Computed example of a mutant assay.
Amino acid sequence: MIQDWTLLGSSQQGIDLEIQKSMLIERYEIPAVVINKKISPYDLGVFELYVHQDNFEKAKLAIIEFKN
């Protein structure tokens, strides 16, 4: 993974992480990436949402606020 980036969340489907990523970028100007770690033929693995460690706490709070 990219150095100094921290896992913020994971999901089986990934669409929820894409929505969260868009929210972080658009509302809070926090760079975020979603990485697909699925093995396609077997539907194993997850999608993961990462943010830079400097933005981790702010992003975590933003996600909690967004879900409520």
Rank of each mutant, 00 (worst) to 15 (best):
residue 24 L to S: 03
residue 34 V to W: 10
residue 66 F to Y: 09
residue 19 I to V: 11
residue 67 K to G: 04
residue 28 Y to N: 04
residue 61 L to H: 11
residue 16 D to F: 07
residue 27 R to Y: 10
residue 35 I to E: 07
residue 21 K to W: 04
residue 50 Y to S: 00
residue 38 K to R: 15
residue 62 A to S: 09
residue 63 I to C: 02
residue 8 L to I: 02
residue 49 L to Q: 04
residue 66 F to R: 07
residue 17 L to E: 01
residue 47 F to D: 01
residue 32 A to P: 00
residue 7 L to A: 06
residue 2 I to Y: 14
residue 15 I to M: 05
residue 2 I to H: 14
residue 12 Q to I: 03
residue 30 I to P: 00
residue 4 D to K: 02
residue 36 N to H: 15
residue 55 N to D: 14
residue 31 P to T: 11
residue 35 I to W: 02
residue 33 V to D: 11
residue 11 S to L: 03
residue 45 G to N: 12
residue 53 Q to H: 08
residue 14 G to P: 12
residue 26 E to N: 15
residue 59 A to E: 06
residue 67 K to Q: 08
residue 4 D to P: 12
residue 47 F to K: 00
residue 64 I to E: 13
residue 19 I to C: 07
residue 20 Q to G: 07
residue 24 L to D: 09
residue 19 I to Q: 11
residue 27 R to I: 08
residue 41 P to T: 08
residue 60 K to C: 03
residue 34 V to T: 15
residue 42 Y to N: 12
residue 26 E to T: 11
residue 31 P to Q: 13
residue 54 D to P: 05
residue 30 I to Y: 15
residue 36 N to Q: 15
residue 16 D to A: 04
residue 63 I to N: 02
residue 52 H to F: 07
residue 32 A to N: 14
residue 30 I to Q: 01
residue 11 S to F: 03
residue 45 G to T: 12
residue 35 I to Q: 01
residue 11 S to Q: 03
residue 3 Q to T: 13
residue 48 E to A: 06
residue 43 D to M: 14
residue 44 L to D: 11
residue 56 F to M: 03
residue 21 K to V: 06
residue 25 I to P: 02
residue 48 E to F: 05
residue 63 I to E: 01
residue 12 Q to D: 10
residue 5 W to M: 10
residue 7 L to Y: 06
residue 52 H to M: 06
residue 39 I to Q: 15
residue 42 Y to T: 15
residue 57 E to D: 09
residue 27 R to D: 13
residue 13 Q to E: 10
residue 33 V to P: 01
residue 66 F to V: 02
residue 17 L to Y: 04
residue 47 F to I: 04
residue 9 G to K: 00
residue 46 V to M: 11
residue 42 Y to F: 15
residue 63 I to A: 00
residue 23 M to G: 03
residue 62 A to D: 03
residue 36 N to W: 12
residue 48 E to K: 00
residue 62 A to I: 07
residue 61 L to D: 06
residue 63 I to T: 01
residue 11 S to E: 07
residue 53 Q to P: 02
residue 18 E to Q: 08
residue 58 K to F: 05
residue 49 L to S: 05
residue 56 F to C: 01
residue 43 D to L: 13
residue 37 K to M: 00
residue 12 Q to C: 05
residue 63 I to W: 12
residue 21 K to C: 09
residue 20 Q to L: 11
residue 67 K to E: 10
residue 35 I to N: 09
residue 25 I to F: 05
residue 63 I to Y: 08
residue 55 N to P: 10
residue 26 E to S: 15
residue 66 F to N: 12
residue 11 S to R: 05
residue 41 P to D: 10
residue 32 A to W: 11
residue 47 F to Y: 00
